[in-house]
Design a protein around this nucleic acid. Structure first.
Lengths: 305, 305
DNA sequence: CAACTTTACGACTTACGTAAACATG
DNA sequence: CATGTTTACGTAAGTCGTAAAGTTG
C-alpha cells in the first residue's frame, strides 16, 4: 500500500480525469497513467475503468480513495507536529475568498504579521455559486465561502468547515427612498419594488425570492449582478433596491445607500472556512485560519443583531 | 515528509538501535544509517544523536516518531479497507501467547477455520514477566499477555489492548492435603505452608506475597518455576502448595491436584491481547483477534466465580 | 578489541518525460 | 479531429549491499 499511489487515487477521485491530476501534481498524464497501472497490478484489482473519452473510478477505487484521505491527514499532522516543534511555518498558503469576505477580513488578517511571519500567503478572490465553493478546495488551502440557508451544500463532502461569522443581510435603499425613513423593512413594505439581484444560485438569490413569497407576490428582478459595488451604485442611482450584507456595506459610507434590517425572516449569511482535512492540519494553514477567526471576531465585536 | 522515513524513525524509537531496526526490516545497518541521514537532511534538524556506542533519539526525533504511529495506523486502515473490500485476508499473522493461554485458547481458535481461511497463523509461546509482554509487540502482531494487578504495565504505552477474559486463581493442593476437605481457602488457612512459586516479576509472584501479608506472616517459597505442569507435578508430589489458574488446570484432570478458591482477596488474572495500533487495523489481525475473543467467551461461558 | 555506526562506491530498481499510438464522442 | 488515455523507451534519481573506516566502552 504505497502512499504516493493512494494520494494519486484520491486526486483522481476529486478531479475526475488523469489529465487534471497530472496538471495538479505537475506531471505528465503519461506518468499518472503508469502509476495507476502499477498500483492496480500491485493490488490485483482494477481501480479505474474507461468511461467515454476519460476514466472513472470503480467502486473499489472509490473505497480506497476514501481511506487515502485519512492517510494524507495523518501525514499532514506529522508535518504539523514537526513544524510546531521547530516553530517554523512551512511554505505557502493559498487562500481564496469571495469579494466581500476579502474586503472585510483581508485587511485585518494581513495586519497580524506575527501570525503570518514566514508564511507566503497567496490570496485570490472568487465569486461563485454556493455549491461551487467546495470544488475550490482542490487547489486552495483555505476557501472562505458563504451560505444563507441550511444546510450548506458542502455538508457530507468530507471537508473541514470552520465557521467564521454570521453577517446580517439588510435591505439596501437609495437614501431618498420613502422607506429610508423607517428603521426596519418588512417583506410587505417592499412589495412591488424593482430589485437588483444576483445570478441564479448565488447566495442572496434565494433570499430575495423568499421575501417575495412572504409578501405574497413574486419579486421583480430587473438586473442580476455579482459585484456588490455595482449593485450599490445601481441602488444609489434609483434603479432598484437590493439585499446587501451589513458589515461589508458599513465600510463604504457616503455611498448614497442606506441599509434597513429586514423583519419577518432571519436574513443573514454565514461565512465559513472550507479546507481539505489534510490541508487543515498544516501548521501554516492553521495559523492563517486562526488569523481569519480572530479577524471575524473583531468584526462582530460590539454588534448583536 | 516521507512515510518510509517515518516508519524507520518509529522502529528506531521502539527498538533503540540501528542494528536492531536493520534486522527487523531485513536490511543492513548501512542502509538504515543512510536513510536516517537523508531524512535529517530533508527535515533540517538532527533526529538522532550518538549515545555511548549506539544512538538515541533527540526530543525532535521522539516527537516525530509519535506522529509516525498515526501515519502507520492510517495506512494499515487503508490496507484493511482494501482487504475488506476484496474479502481476502492478506498474509500472515504472528501470534504470541503465554503457555496456559495457548493451552486454553489455541485449540478453540484453530477450530474456527472459517475465520482463519487464507491466513497463515504463526504461533509462538513465551513465558515472560508481566512488563516484558509489551516489548513482544515489536515483532508479533498479537501478544496474549496476562496480569494480576491493576493497572497493567502497558498502560500509557500507546498499545492497543483488547481484554479477553478474567480467570480466577485458586490455591492448588495435593488431593490428600488436609485443606482439600474444605471448599475454600483463606490466607490464614495456608499460613506456614511451603510454596511453589514463580520467578520474581512473573504475574502470580506478587499475589503469593499478598497472601502472606494478609496472613500476617511472609510466605516460604521453596521453588520458583515458570511451567504450570512442573508446578502441578511438584504440588501433587507434596513438595508444597501453589497458586494455579482455574480454567487451565481444569483441563488436566487426574493430576493429583485439587483447586480451592481463595477467600479474602480478589484472586484472578486478566488475559489481554496487545497489539501495535497499526497492526491492530489489519483485517487478518482483526480476524484472529475475533477468534480469540470468541474462544475466551466459550471458556467463561457457564462460569461465574 | 568488540559492538555499533558511518562513509565510499558500484549495482540495481523505479518513476518520469518524450513521442507516438490508441480510443471515443 | 479534438480530447483524453495508453505504450515504448531512454534518462535521471535514489536505495541498497559490500567493504572499509570511524567511534566508544
Amino acid at each position: 500500500m504505497d502512499v504516493s499511489h493512494l494520494s494519486l487515487l484520491r486526486e483522481l477521485a476529486e478531479r475526475g480525469s488523469i489529465t487534471a491530476v497530472a496538471e495538479a501534481t505537475h506531471r505528465t498524464p503519461s506518468a499518472v497513467s503508469q502509476q495507476l497501472k502499477t498500483m492496480q497490478r500491485e493490488l490485483g484489482a482494477p481501480l479505474v475503468e474507461r468511461h467515454g473519452r476519460g476514466v472513472r473510478l470503480t467502486s473499489a477505487g472509490n473505497t480506497l480513495a476514501a481511506a487515502a484521505v485519512d492517510v494524507a491527514t495523518a501525514l499532514s499532522t506529522a508535518q504539523a507536529v514537526w513544524d510546531e516543534f521547530r516553530g517554523s511555518n512551512s511554505g505557502t498558503v493559498d487562500l481564496v475568498l469571495f469579494p466581500s469576505a476579502g474586503q472585510l477580513l483581508l485587511p485585518r488578517l494581513l495586519a497580524k504579521e506575527d501570525l503570518l511571519s514566514g508564511i507566503e500567503l497567496r490570496c485570490d478572490d472568487r465569486d461563485v455559486r454556493t455549491e461551487a465553493f467546495a470544488a475550490l478546495t482542490a487547489d486552495a488551502d483555505i476557501v472562505v465561502a458563504h451560505h444563507v440557508f441550511e444546510p450548506p451544500p458542502w455538508t457530507g463532502s468530507r471537508l473541514t468547515a470552520v465557521p467564521l461569522l454570521r453577517e446580517p443581510l439588510d435591505i439596501a435603499l437609495p437614501e431618498d427612498h420613502p422607506l429610508a425613513a423607517k428603521t426596519t423593512c418588512s417583506p410587505r413594505d417592499v412589495r412591488g419594488e424593482r430589485w437588483i439581484g444576483v445570478p441564479e444560485g448565488f447566495p442572496f438569490d434565494h433570499l430575495v425570492k423568499q421575501i417575495g413569497d412572504l409578501a405574497g407576490q413574486p419579486v421583480t428582478v430587473v438586473q442580476r449582478l455579482r459585484d456588490n459595488r455595482i449593485i450599490e451604485a445601481l441602488v444609489a442611482a434609483g434603479h432598484g433596491i437590493s439585499v446587501l450584507p451589513r458589515y461589508a456595506q458599513a465600510a463604504t459610507p457616503g455611498s448614497g445607500v442606506v441599509l434597513r434590517p429586514i423583519t419577518g425572516l432571519k436574513a443573514g449569511r454565514r461565512m465559513v472556512a472550507l479546507m481539505r482535512p489534510d490541508r487543515a492540519e498544516r501548521r501554516a494553514v492553521r495559523q492563517v485560519l486562526r488569523g481569519l477567526t480572530e479577524a471575524a471576531a473583531e468584526i462582530t465585536a460590539g454588534d448583536s443583531s
